[in-house]
Design a protein around this nucleic acid. Structure first.
Lengths: 212, 212
DNA sequence: AATTATACATACATGAATGTATGTTGTCAA
DNA sequence: TTGACAACATACATTCATGTATGTATAATT
């Protein structure tokens, strides 16, 4: 019953997708390894061969989500738009729209927004928060660029702006992911983000009278 | 070993606070009724006398949090300020500040932000979402008033404004509650909220040139 | 003052999940 | 081609939480 290396890799991935499916239906703490095994059509023995325990599956899923996100921002930052905030807004709307079509990603995100890092998951809390900090630093560089280009009023604090944006995104995603009725991707993403940027974008052109 | 009615009420409350304490340390799904009982210095028998099961304790905690929130808004709406958005902003900042000093409330909120409504908690998801909707309607009335008073531009959509604000609050609270390092009540609450309202407040006086 | 129902504590039965130990089969390397 | 080890499956032991059934003392009721 030994399998080829590629086959083994396939079963590992099937375990991950089965776990995600179970988690998104019954939640992390309410799914047993046996349920995951049955969904993946293996036994618990296979899971214990590929992972140490359930929490390691959890962490593996987080990795698969965050890396592409960081990369998307990093790549976008390579182009130096004359209007960094416009660029940022478009990137965010684009990422949100992509999210809607990628149900697997939505399930993973929902998992991390809803779970509490208690019990066996405590060990990952700091690690995952550090990843978040990294992405925040990337976001801030958009505001820094805008300021350098003189697009923001002098008093604007790029850190405050970043945090405000971050809180908004977090809340919007939270609502998208946990309450399917309140927000609607197609009709609200663009409208809400535009509304927010109206404030973040406290620039001279938007309010020409406030300066000069 | 029978107790007086008031004594019984006290044990019920001690069970609730013990449960909250346990939940905030180990999470809902990782605390057993026996742990709660020990913390409250009773036995599981006492818990099963006062509550049907663990999830009913969870729901009782939610009630104790949301009712005062609704009441605070309702009472604030009784005074008809000439500047409704200013009034709203001040109320929000005030509520956030109060939150910081009320560690019990913070623990309850953290519980509901982090938990996933799966397993035995599914039954409460809709109920709790309906409560949220109610509070959203209350918030929207601030924007409606602002519009009636001619403080918003004609295109402003009070629903979009409310949702944007809601997402921001949600995200800010989420960060406050789950990541103690990122945000700081004293220094950030006012700054971020002010920043946000700069955008929500898309009124004539802020940008006199856009109208008339 | 006797009775009853309350407010629990104790005891028990059950089930479910975990981790590990061990078995088995096939692959790959030499 | 044949060990040796990889990739699991199976079996077992243990723990632990839940729900319920039952016991009990005492406050409240009459």
């Amino acid at each position: 019953m030994r399998k080829t290396k590629e086959e083994a890799q396939k079963t590992k991935e099937s375990i991950l997708t089965a776990a995600l499916s179970c988690f998104s239906v019954k939640g992390y703490f309410n799914t047993s390894l046996d349920e995951i095994a049955k969904k993946a059509k293996v036994t618990r023995g296979a899971i214990y061969w590929h992972f140490q325990n359930k929490s390691e599956i959890f962490d593996a899923l987080h990795d698969s989500l965050h890396e592409p996100f960081i990369q998307a921002i990093t790549r976008d930052l390579e182009t130096d738009s004359p209007y960094p905030l416009q660029q940022l807004k478009e990137l965010l709307v684009k990422l949100m729209m992509e999210l809607e079509e990628n149900t697997a990603k939505m399930k993973i995100m929902r998992l991390f927004y809803q779970c509490d890092y208690s019990g066996e998951l405590q060990q990952f809390k700091k690690k995952h928060q550090d990843k978040k900090l990294k992405s925040l630093q990337l976001l801030q560089s958009y505001f820094d660029r805008a300021k350098q280009k003189g697009l923001l009023v002098a008093e604007a604090d790029s850190e405050i702006l970043t945090l405000t944006l971050h809180c908004f995104i977090k809340g919007m995603l939270y609502e998208f992911l946990t309450d399917s009725k309140l927000l609607n991707f197609k009709s609200h993403t663009e409208a809400l983000t535009t509304q927010l940027f109206m404030g973040l974008n406290n620039c001279r052109s938007a309010c020409p009278n406030t300066e000069q």
